[in-house]
Amino acid sequence: MLYVDHISKTFNPGTVNEKKALTDLSLHLAPGDFTTIIGSNGAGKSTLLNAVAGTFYVDEGSVRLDGRDITYVPDHRRSVVIGRLFQDPLKGTAPNMTIEENLALAFLRSAQGKRPFSRISRKEKDMFRERLSLLDMGLEDRMKQPVGLLSGGQRQALTLLMATLVTPKLLLLDEHTAALDPGTARKVLDLTRSIVEEHSITCLMVTHNMHQALELGNRTLMMAAGRIVLDVSGAERAGMTVDDLLSRFKAGTGKALDNDRILLS
């Protein structure tokens, strides 16, 4: 499905702020893989997601998705097949437009949504309503309201729905529950799990929560200094505890994990 092949990225090359964010990183995701990524601050987790999403072009290496080389494809083209959620719930929706209009925009990713002068049809509105009701937040009765009136959790759930409205080949989740209160975070996470499982979407999720990293999905990666230092899946992962993960991390990098958010949660 996704082949990331020996990619490197250096920010601000040749200046005092030079930062090697990704170093010769390779990753292969099989179709339907739900992979979680953890790592210290600045390990390159978000940078990896950005490289896959096309926020920037990589300096070296290549990115292939579903047999197609997308290394130099701009981000808005990649978003046809890649869905994405950010930590900031405000980032994924247009606040002054209604829920219905936001969903209509997300639906532009489908082939039938491409006719530029067509309007949102009755049938589509019914489909939006039906999908909204699956969120179980009462949003299906508020379709004419601007999204700016929703809470952070509701907006993130809506963004999740928008990212998966047209089933993407790959879903990128960048700590998408980190800014929500624990109850809402749990709810959004459950929704994520059920939507991803229902459509068997290949998924790459960054998290700072070790329990979450082991609990969700079928594979866990750990990153440090722009490299993948640990890659566990299958039986080995099934019996793992957070302590095992921490000691494996130390063995892999020679130092303890320094992300206090991870240690606190």
């Binding site: 978003s79 980032k91 994924g92 002054n96 928008m162």
Partner: peptide, 15 residues
């Protein structure tokens, strides 16, 4: 309209 409201979101909607 979305471009004036949230440019990132427009990009994420393949526009």
């Amino acid at each position: 309209r979305a471009t004036g409201d949230n440019r990132d979101m427009v990009r994420a909607s393949s526009v």
